[in-house]
């Protein structure tokens, strides 16, 4: 059963059980789809020794970057850590205060998809013959080379969708969808922040992108409350 949390402290209540050492999948591609209010709540929560999975490693000084700045993220798994506005991560990395695992973007998504789909591992052609193949099992299948890739599972997924119904079915908006639907399947507990919650039955079942089975908590962050 999905909990729908509303009110000023909804985001804080939604992340209150995230424990030290947790692996947290955080949605977003840059700032599109980044669940800012949930990340801020995780920062206030103060859990430490976290592993964070995101496409990037923070932009500017807000959201994920602000969480990294607390020093409570031990490791980040991402495809593009370095960007024009990733100075928070850059400083942490250069001073040896954060561990980095760089994963090709498609493998990153597929490894989480595999976790959510109960796949033990899979062979991907991405990265063959590159430095990122080091230490990975390689196999030739029907004349093509592949690398063995393992799932990435989260204790929590923090994602942003557009609209939820009271059961936790989700629809997204444009390219803010990105990693949300995949991360929702790959975590033990999935928390989705949304700008609107509608009554059950108000979403067209044909248009639901993430079915409620994957969603544990919905946090309403109305547009006027969002930064």
């Amino acid at each position: 059963m999905t909990d729908v949390l509303e009110g000023a402290d909804a985001a804080d209540r939604a992340v209150a059980d995230i424990h030290d050492g947790a692996t947290v999948l955080i949605g977003g591609f840059g700032t599109a789809g980044q669940p800012m209010e949930l990340i801020d709540a995780l920062r206030r929560r103060g859990a430490t020794d976290l592993t964070v999975v995101n496409n990037n490693a923070g932009n500017g000084d807000t959201g994920l970057a602000a969480l990294l700045a607390t020093g409570r993220v031990r490791k980040i798994i991402c495809s593009v850590p370095r960007q024009s506005d990733s100075w928070v991560f850059d400083d942490l990395y250069r001073s040896g205060r954060i561990e980095l695992e760089v994963v090709p973007q498609g493998n990153l998504a597929e490894r989480m998809r595999a976790a959510g789909a109960g796949i033990g591992a899979f062979f991907s052609p991405t990265g063959v013959g590159t430095p990122l193949a080091e230490g990975k099992e390689q196999r030739t299948i029907a004349g093509r080379d592949y690398l063995l890739e393992y799932p990435i599972r989260g204790d929590y997924a923090l994602i942003k969708a557009h609209t939820a119904d009271r059961m936790g079915n989700l629809v997204y908006r444009k390219t803010a969808r990105n990693f949300g639907p995949v991360m929702a399947t790959a975590a033990t507990t999935t928390v989705a922040q949304v700008v609107d919650v509608v009554r059950t039955g108000a979403l067209d079942p044909e248009n639901v992108v993430t079915p409620s089975i994957y969603v544990d908590r919905v946090v309403l962050v109305p547009p006027e409350a969002a930064r």
Partner: peptide, 14 residues
């Protein structure tokens, strides 16, 4: 240099 691969490897082989 901070390595950043993004989608380049997936595109190159895809």
């Amino acid at each position: 240099a901070i390595p950043a691969v993004g989608g380049a490897m997936d595109l190159a082989i895809g």
